[in-house]
Design a protein around this nucleic acid. Structure first.
Lengths: 345, 345
DNA sequence: CTGAAAGCGCTTACAG
DNA sequence: CTGAAAGCGCTTACAG
């Protein structure tokens, strides 16, 4: 299984009685080489099935043309779509993409990041795991002069390029929509507050209530209702209250919203009449449930492309310093049956 | 933005007045180096924030510890789950994973594969795009002594390691289940027949009918019903026949099955009583529709791990020749409401 | 236009 | 245990 020796530029040079320098120049399409010999070299290279050793080339040139991506989970819709967008862009620039998943483990995240630093990638794109609080591994990326781009779940304190959703604004719109539909007691299923995205969504919720002069009712705010199961559990509690909510915003995800829907249905609450449900992320299944679930779309593929383009813009700008900045993508409220009181389905 | 020079083993050596050889040995935890100097070197390396240049190391050692993956789409459940499984295994072996998507384009697939060959990856794992018929680019992988592993959509003629689902057997079981439920006119929505997986599923369908002495009715076989839209279109035609089918096997995917369900519902056919629906792939949404859709689960994460392990088994086996072989994973029929005639939902 | 030479950062036989 | 040297495969100033 160990490879036989591959064809190198020396093999080509030897065969043609010229030097490796010329071969290299021809292969790089330099114009400091005779047109005819260039053709001959290219022809011979093809015959010998030559493939440039990118490792050697990169080592010599001090470049790598590789971007590393670290996400909590590859197989989550949001992330796989963002990665797909990143890939489309990096591919068009002839860059490689190395992918790691942290599995929401802070420890694995650190290992992934260090592996990417060792690999001398040009850029690391990351959405952090839910766990951590210490981010020296990310500071380390910066210290190695590797471009760091955070997206979605970003560490606010780190001054890097960031691409995020405007979670607060999207939530504000979502809750406002609920209020306009006549919902009066709106509950919040919140996510781990160490992640900025969940803090922002909570902020949007509170802001919307304040704006419409509605009281914030503590018993309607459920901590850490992150998964379908936890969403279901939280919903059971909420709907068992003496005064249950008439709407639930599952700020963590559509999976959580699905848990809400299942419990509500099984407890005999009519959605959307007796209970409105708003999710987050526009997972494909949200339009398939009955009733379909209102949610918030995050333009994932577009985010991916934006992230990758951000890197290429910066890197073309070699001399100047990178100014830390944040690109905020405005998500879109998708109104479906689960919150459409006026127009029953 | 161009990196300042990074710390190398020479920097460490200079600082300690020793040679790079010793530094390298210490860093590689060789025992041909004094314990105390080793400690000193490690300490200094940490202080100088040293990270090994993996490119240089790999070039020298003639290894790369990188596996390339080429799939039609990263953001499809099946593939992202397989990739996730691959990643878990490669990560545990300290291998990098480079990911490309062909977007179902044969041309892009060729470019991806060539890029990976240039990159001198140790192994290429591929599920081919729907388009192509010519596979010299894959032969090329083999010619470069790169381990090639095909999965799911494999090119039969190429003698490589293969990890597949037993599509025929799974389909046989699925259709048998339909027959046992009393369905008599079972239609097939088939996929592009240049892909082995769709040929196998068709074969399973035909086999099941023959086994139960049921006639094969040409007008019940719809070509190329690959997407939700095409599935819907095919279903419209089928259900408009003078003698419409009483069950439809959407062999291409659950998305196609979803198209069937929507059209059937809108045309007033009762599922599962008047029309049974069987999908393929166990997409998460299949348990959320009403009625829920019966389908076939492919153990995707497990497949991913199996693929990666196959590579590592082979590579540990350096001397012996790789024997082309196929690992067939038996998928599982998931019976849900859309085919459960006896037990209505 | 072409060659000889140095060097990217590392590893590893070869001496001692 | 440690050093000097060669080499992985390529690129690129420097001469000519």
């Amino acid at each position: 299984m160990r490879p036989k020796k591959r064809t190198t530029i020396y093999d080509i040079a030897a065969k043609l009685n010229i030097t490796a320098s010329s071969v290299s120049r021809a292969l790089n399409n330099s114009n400091h080489v005779n047109e005819d010999t260039k053709k001959l070299i290219l022809k011979t290279a093809a015959e010998l099935n030559y493939k440039r050793n990118v490792l050697a080339s990169n080592l010599r040139k001090g470049e790598n043309k590789t971007i590393g991506v670290v996400v909590p989970r590859i197989n989550q819709n949001f992330f796989s779509n963002v990665i797909s967008g990143i890939e489309e862009t990096t591919y068009s620039k002839n860059f490689n993409l190395i992918i790691c998943q942290s599995n929401e483990s802070h420890e694995k995240e650190i290992k992934c990041v260090n592996a990417l630093i060792n690999q001398h990638v040009d850029c690391i794109i990351i959405s952090v795991a839910a766990e951590g609080t210490d981010y020296t591994h990310l500071q380390n990326v910066i210290d190695h002069n590797i471009q760091l781009i955070q997206f979605d779940r970003v560490v606010d304190e780190l001054e890097t390029l960031k691409v995020i959703n405007d979670n607060e604004l999207a939530t504000l719109e979502g809750i406002t929509h609920l209020i306009e539909q006549g919902y009066k007691r709106i509950a919040l299923l919140e996510g781990p507050q160490n992640l900025n995205i969940f803090r922002q969504r909570k902020a949007g919720y509170l802001k919307a209530l304040r704006k419409h002069k509605m009281p914030v009712i503590d018993e309607l705010i459920v901590e850490n209702a992150w998964t379908k199961e936890l969403g279901a559990e939280g919903t059971r509690k909420l709907l068992s209250l003496p005064e249950p909510p008439d709407a639930i915003f599952a700020s963590t995800s559509d999976f959580s919203a699905l848990g809400v829907l299942e419990v509500a249905t099984s407890m005999g609450f009519k959605v959307p009449d007796e209970l409105g449900i708003l999710g987050y992320a526009n997972e494909p299944f949200t339009e398939l449930t009955s009733p379909s679930i209102s949610t918030i779309d995050q333009f994932t593929n577009y985010m991916g492309k934006t992230i990758a383009n951000l890197y290429f813009q910066e890197s073309e700008n070699k001399d100047s310093v990178v100014v830390p900045r944040t690109i905020s993508v405005k998500p879109k409220l998708i109104v479906r049956a689960s919150t459409s009181r006026t127009q029953q389905v």
